[in-house]
Structure formats: structure tokens, C-alpha cells
């Protein structure tokens, strides 16, 4: 059994975007803060810290979750992926990212990393979703800039819905 007292910092290690990393943290450290401020992965954004907006969505063992509702301790030893993992090593955007650019699916870009991480998970399980299913998954995110039209257009193109 892993057990840590409240004011005790312990070393939390996990695999972030394929690299094993570790840092010290109290048990209450949120995964969103741990990724951003302890591990330096600032691509994951914090928008509401109560699980509604979806900006902080990352993948743990391939599953998209809210990192603001997850303790760093819960990700210990797990495989965590963030938006920084998506582009190729030369910075080449993947299909989904390219579709977002083409269809102007982002403006300020603050919500975008979470949306990309949600759909990277969802599309890996459902490569040929309906428009309705895309909409349902997207409804787990708030975007204030776009009105969602560009995002839907990008998603539809990425999955081959014309």
C-alpha cells in the first residue's frame, strides 16, 4: 500500500509523452499543476478546476480525463500523454491538428489542447464516428472564441465525414 501523510512530499514518477519523469509533491497536488509547474509541460491548460471546461484534458493510459480532477498521485506510474505528444519530431502537425488549422478551429487556442486530447482518445476507439457522436464528445469542452463551427468542420474532415 502506498501511503503519504498530508504535509509530506514524496517523489511521484510517471511517463510523460514517452519519457520517464519524476518530481516531489504533496498528496494534494493536482495533476494539472504537477504537469505544468513541476514537469514543465505547459501545453495543458487550466480553465476551471472543477471539471466543466475541459481545457486540462490529458490522457492517462490512453484515456482522456480532466487533469484538474486528478491527483498527481493517481497518475503515479502511469503513462500520461499531453498535447505536446501530438506533432511529429520535426514539429509536423498530425492529421487532426492540420484539420484544425485548415478550418480555423481555434482562435485563442486555450481550450484546443484539451479538445485534441479528448479526440485523440475517442477516435482511437471509434475511428468512424457519426457527426452526432463527435458533437457529444465535443460537448465536454467549452470554447469561447469559435462558436464551435470550425471545430466541427475540422473534426468531420479528420474522420472523413463530408
Amino acid at each position: 500500500m502506498r501511503r503519504v501523510n498530508k504535509d509530506e512530499k514524496s517523489r511521484i514518477s510517471l511517463t510523460l509523452n514517452g519519457r520517464k519523469m519524476a518530481a516531489e509533491a504533496e498528496p494534494r497536488m493536482l495533476l494539472s499543476d504537477f504537469l505544468r509547474h513541476s514537469l514543465g509541460a505547459t501545453g495543458t491548460h487550466v480553465g476551471c478546476e472543477h471539471g466543466v471546461c475541459g481545457c486540462c484534458t490529458v490522457q492517462i493510459d490512453g484515456t482522456a480525463v480532466r487533469s484538474c480532477l486528478t491527483l498527481a498521485m493517481q497518475a503515479e506510474g502511469r503513462d500520461v500523454k499531453t498535447v505536446e505528444s501530438l506533432a511529429g519530431p520535426n514539429g509536423r502537425l498530425n492529421t487532426l491538428q492540420q484539420a484544425f488549422q485548415k478550418h480555423h478551429a481555434l482562435q485563442c487556442g486555450f481550450c484546443t489542447p484539451g479538445i485534441l486530447m479528448s479526440f485523440t482518445d475517442f477516435l482511437s476507439r471509434n475511428p468512424k464516428p457519426t457527426e452526432e457522436e463527435l458533437r457529444e464528445v465535443l460537448s465536454g469542452h467549452i470554447c469561447r472564441c469559435t462558436g464551435y463551427a470550425g471545430i466541427m468542420a475540422a473534426l468531420k474532415e479528420a474522420v472523413g465525414i463530408s
Partner: peptide, 9 residues
Amino acid sequence: KPRPFDYAR
């Protein structure tokens, strides 16, 4: 941010 708590797994 949450208040401090002990954690057990």
C-alpha cells in the same frame, strides 16, 4: 486548491 489530506492507495 484542495486542503491538505493524507493519501493512501
